[in-house]
Write a protein that binds this DNA or RNA. Structure first.
Length: 206
DNA sequence: ATTAGGATCAACT
DNA sequence: GTTGATCCTAATA
């Protein structure tokens, strides 16, 4: 199968978190926001697989926070971190198996003026959605969007296939800010995109 | 250009 | 009580 023919479907999200993460690069998210519509193109994601990944929120079983990771693919898992920020994932794997892909960064496709309105501290357009909490802020993702079906055309936030990213533009490496399983190269990004966030280890290796 | 501190919720020891 | 799938500001170089 040719990578440049790849398209995203719910079925493909269910296969496994690594191919799902790879296929989510280049996909678009459309959010209906106060002031207008914001469309972004995903350029950086991370895979988390609940069953055997100690860095995944679902690793120690189902809780009130992480239940969406155990549900059907294509739903938003939104969680609150550092007492201040929201981060968003897309659930993967079949219903009953925990897995998700963290949305780390995106480029704004449109509307730039609406996007700037919702990210007033961004010093450049590349910063509008560079980093998972910034992306969540731009799209307005909060608690009430947890478990939202991104494949439902009536949802306020939708996932669309977008233009596939050629295989030679995709890079992989360790996930950002994780201590457990720090060496798994489960972060995927589009090489050269100014919206990709800077990598930093969470702690020095032991 | 790089670094340190603060904000302050929820899961976990 | 500690630490985190983070971001912003202020201080230092």
């Amino acid at each position: 199968m040719r990578a440049d023919r790849a398209t995203l479907s719910r079925e493909q999200l269910a296969v496994d978190v690594l191919p799902a993460a790879r296929l989510l690069l280049g996909c678009q998210l459309v959010a209906d926001r106060p002031g207008g519509q914001v469309v972004v193109r995903l350029v950086e994601v991370e895979a988390y697989r609940g069953s055997d990944d100690p860095a995944a929120h679902s690793y120690r079983g189902r809780t009130a926070r992480n239940f969406v990771m155990f549900g059907p693919p294509g739903h938003l898992y939104v969680y609150f971190v550092y007492g201040m920020h929201f981060c968003a994932n897309i659930s993967c794997l079949p219903d009953g198996e925990p897995g998700a892909v963290l949305l780390r960064a995106a480029e704004v496709v449109s509307d730039l003026d609406v996007a700037r309105l919702h990210r007033p501290t961004a010093r450049s357009d590349a910063e509008l959605a560079r980093g998972p909490a910034r992306l969540a802020t731009l799209l307005g993702l909060r608690r009430e969007h947890n478990n939202l079906d991104l494949t439902d055309p009536t949802s306020p936030v939708r996932l669309l296939p977008g233009e596939p990213v050629p295989a030679d533009r995709v890079r992989t490496g360790p996930r950002v800010g994780v201590v457990e399983a720090r060496d798994r190269p489960w972060r995927f990004w589009v090489d050269g995109s100014p919206a990709v966030s800077a990598y930093r280890r969470h702690r020095e290796p032991a």
